[in-house]
Nucleic acid binder design. Structure first.
Lengths: 122, 122
DNA sequence: CTATTTGCAAACCCTTTGCGCTGGT
DNA sequence: ACCAGCGCAAAGGGTTTGCAAATAG
């Protein structure tokens, strides 16, 4: 079973790589359709599913929001503006974090999300 | 518009307060029906909605999982076991966290979730 | 007695899936 | 020419909502 290189895949990948912030499925669809108007929602879901399984995408889940997706690059965290609802990337990660985990537990990874006002809304 | 003290509200509140970990809506329903068999799913959703808006409940969102709810007590974080899928509370929170936020941004709150193996699964 | 709240079922998302057609190789 | 992948539309699963009956105050 071989993987084919289709326009749809190129478009979805491109949209996510060029995004300045994590995108929802519908945002990916909207941006993708500017390049390829026939792009369908089902295809976006399928492609995002593939990319996520291949660990080329990361899911950013924020309570109350639909999931967002971003290119899997280096380890980082997020800031969600409660004013304009945009999600920003935050660099850095304190080493001490792991010390919060109780003895006997084995932490593998973690998510950290800040909420508040971004530069523009503040 | 005054709020009435119904059996359903008491049950939902009690279930969540007595829970040893954050519960999904269906877990709240199942536990609640042991005390009040007629309790309906819609009522659980409505009551959780009210409590969340009143900030008496906190939502624990984990990518891929349905949201869970817990009593709003002190500030703390969570550990999700990827072995048994249970969610544990983690105490403590490094002061340095806020220093990750860029200048001009105003952090109000944050979520932190660890993933890995719990004591039992490790 | 009156207005809120409940339970039910239908309506609504958002996401997934079956299927015939398109198009990459 | 073959078959992975697409678009469409229907199905699924979780959550919300309209409404008549139940019930707190």
């Amino acid at each position: 079973m071989q993987v084919r290189n289709t326009k749809q895949k190129q478009v979805v990948t491109k949209v996510i790589q060029e995004a300045e912030c994590p995108l929802t499925v519908h945002e990916v669809l909207a941006r993708g359709q500017k390049m390829l108007p026939s792009l369908s929602l089902a295809t976006v879901y399928r492609e995002i599913g593939r990319l996520t399984e291949a660990h080329e995408l990361q899911t950013v889940a924020i309570p109350g929001d639909p999931p967002r997706y971003e290119a899997h690059s280096h380890h980082h965290h997020h800031f969600k503006c409660t004013g304009c609802d945009k999600v920003y990337e935050i660099e850095g990660c304190p080493k001490e974090l792991k010390s919060l985990v109780p003895k006997g537990f084995k932490p593998v990874t973690h998510d950290l999300t800040f909420y508040g006002l971004c530069k523009a809304c503040n």
